[in-house]
């Protein structure tokens, strides 16, 4: 087992910093867009007494298209996870196939590592969303925005809810299984390519994950359906890796 983990060293060296950099860049981009929107949003007078209406947190989050930045970041993370395994400039696979740990076991472990990095990206995006919410509250003042505002926003806004599903177990499970499926697919793609086979499953999965990530509280059917897709992809990918250790010649 120790050998499987140490065999992940080269991939870790090449991916961890990239994933952290992408996470940081996404958070910075979201902060910049969110802040500029928040500061430029004029409160509107409402009613006979001219009471000022402030924008809702979920409204600002939607207008800032935070989920678009998340989606782009997710696609970049997937690309960063795939690239180190591809034989670019050398037949690295010849070395990987001479390890005592076995290339198939290594690929599965590599998938686990990728899943962890995707979890880090997800966690960083959730952290970024909480920081943006804090900024929102600091800008509007505690008398207008409180903990309840946060709670409501993270329940009502599909993107924020998908980031922090709280008690929404199907959605939480969907996100976890999506990370596992994307991580393993990102490890399986270079594995199959090294053996002369084409494997494209990562591309539709990554696009699906990026595009359909926002998910409201009322979308239990959708998240269950997505869970089935990711779960099936995970099982099939693992089975294909275990079956295909030979080169296509």
């Amino acid at each position: 087992m120790k050998r499987a983990w140490t065999a992940l060293g080269p991939a870790a060296r090449l991916t961890v910093w990239k994933v952290l950099a992408i996470s940081l860049a996404c958070a910075a981009g979201q902060w910049a867009v969110f802040r500029s929107l928040l500061l430029g949003w004029e409160p509107e007078p409402y009613g006979p007494e001219g009471e000022l209406i402030y924008p809702l947190l979920e409204g600002v989050a939607d207008a800032a298209r935070l989920n678009w930045i998340f989606g782009a970041g997710l696609l970049l993370v997937c690309a960063a996870l795939v690239l180190p395994g591809l034989d670019r400039g050398a037949k690295t696979g010849y070395t990987l196939r001479r390890l005592a740990v076995g290339e198939r076991a290594l690929t599965l472990a590599w998938g686990g590592q990728n899943a962890l990095l995707l979890l880090i990206f997800w966690g960083s995006q959730a952290g970024a969303a909480l920081l943006l919410a804090r900024q929102y509250m600091a800008t509007l003042g505690a008398e207008i925005a409180g903990a309840q505002t946060l709670f409501l926003a993270f329940s009502r806004a599909p993107y924020l809810h998908a980031l922090l599903p709280l008690w929404d177990w199907p959605l939480l499970l969907r996100n976890l299984v999506a990370c596992a499926a994307l991580g393993l697919s990102a490890a399986a793609l270079p594995f199959h390519w090294r053996h002369g086979r084409k494997s494209w499953v990562l591309f539709p999965l990554a696009v699906l994950a990026a595009w359909c990530f926002p998910c409201g509280m009322d979308a239990a059917v959708g998240s269950t359906f997505a869970l089935i897709i990711y779960g099936s992809a995970l099982a099939l990918t693992a089975a294909n890796v275990w079956r295909g250790s030979w080169d296509e010649d």
Partner: peptide, 19 residues
């Protein structure tokens, strides 16, 4: 070539030592 192009020679030494 069967090395890891993006790694340094020193990193290769560590990897080979482990495996």
């Amino acid at each position: 070539h069967s090395y890891f192009p993006a790694l340094t020679a020193g990193a290769h030494r560590g990897f080979y030592r482990d495996h």
